[in-house]
Amino acid sequence: MHAMLAATESFHVNAVLFYALAALALAGAIGVVISRNPVHSALFLVATMIVIAVFFLTLSAPMVAIVQVIVYASAIVVLFLFVIMLLGIDRQEMLAADDRKYQRIGGAVLGACTLVALIGMTVTNWQLGARTASRRGIEEAGATGDVDNIRPMARTLFTQFAWQFQVTAALLVIAVIGSVVLARRSSRPSREEVAA
């Protein structure tokens, strides 16, 4: 394939399927933003993530799609729902907070700027640099460069990105310890309790 990304090359995806899924995904995304109840937002988020998993399937990335469903749509959203239910913050006083006019106007303007900038980037030609070493590594190892199966991805992840992979392990451990420390009920009284 030419170094200039062949953005006009067809992916052989059914156009009707694509537009239907895109409509679902965008409807879910808008639902996340405009739902007054955080539980509804979380459910819209699940819908969006599952639709994105289907998009991954259409991009011949089945492994990523499965991980998307298991990790994102299940684990992360369940964590969200768990915290919402634990804290009971779907109550009324939370819902009246989002009503400042200047925030709406400013947010809409900045959002429009973001959209224009991103779409502008997507319709421009990129001059892409050298291929990542992963593809070379796969070719040197004698495998095909096709991304249809898990093997090239695993090879990339565990050879070229092995160091980064281990760093993410450290990151996860630190995050888990940090969240335990943060959410632990402190034995010392808080500032408000001392003041009272």
Binding site: F56, L59, A61, V147, L157, F161
Partner: peptide
Amino acid sequence: VTFAKALDDSAGQAAVFF
């Protein structure tokens, strides 16, 4: 993932994991 498909390069899919 779109880049991974368009460039036929699995580094895009690996990046998703990070």
